[in-house]
């Protein structure tokens, strides 16, 4: 009895609705890997937002940094529910992340080079979470979809912020109520640890 595998109805039900769970696990591992590495690299990027101009964007980078960490926190439990897991070796985790590393550019004293990098990272994240939404939408996996669409909403907001800073195109952004508020991921589902 003790060695008998226990049926996971939460997995069975989404498989019956057409979700390829192994494929989904790969996408989620890549997605949370990108969030985690982004959080790390954004820390370095934020530190290099210096001088009078840098002071102006430091807070917005910090919002994106903490919210990306929140995305990692929000989706990792779902990865385990589905039978997946984080790689034991963080190097392997980074190598299978869904987005390239956001290394500090050599030209970091030119703030636009940092902003371009931030924008590339957010755009990659949008593509990555859109894949998860596509795979789980229309009632196929409501739980994963719900978390992924909340993350996606914040990534789209981050993209708009950085485009505004680079091009003056209005994003509708004012400010978060507090740093890294995560209005979509955090407030509605209590999915993060604040």
């Amino acid at each position: 009895m003790a060695n008998e595998p226990i049926k996971v109805v939460g997995i069975e039900s989404i498989e019956k609705r057409g979700v390829d769970v192994q494929k989904l696990i790969k996408l989620l591992t890549a997605g949370v890997g990108a969030e985690f590495t982004t959080y790390y690299y954004y820390t370095i990027l934020r530190m290099h937002c210096t001088g009078l101009d840098g002071e102006g964007i430091k807070e917005i980078v910090e919002d994106a940094r903490i919210e990306d960490r929140n995305h990692f926190e929000a989706m990792v439990p779902r990865l385990y529910e589905l039978g997946g897991s984080l790689p034991r070796d963080i190097r392997k985790f980074a190598d299978q992340a869904g987005c390239p590393d956001a290394f500090l550019p050599d030209t970091w004293e030119d703030l636009t080079s940092i902003l371009r990098l931030l924008l590339e990272a957010e755009q990659c994240a949008i593509r990555s979470w859109s894949e998860v939404c596509d795979m789980t939408a229309n009632g196929k996996d409501p739980r994963t979809y719900d978390i992924a669409q909340r993350i996606l909403q914040e990534e789209v907001e981050h993209e708009a912020w950085f485009i505004e800073l680079l091009s003056k195109r209005p994003s509708g952004h004012f400010r978060r109520k507090y740093v890294g508020q995560s209005p979509h991921v955090g407030a509605q589902g209590s999915l993060i640890h604040l």
């Binding site: 390239p100 590393d101 590339e120």
Partner: peptide, 14 residues
Amino acid sequence: LKQQSNWRRQSEEW
């Protein structure tokens, strides 16, 4: 992808 500013430093495994 090589047009991206940080491409050359990406790990070969990635």
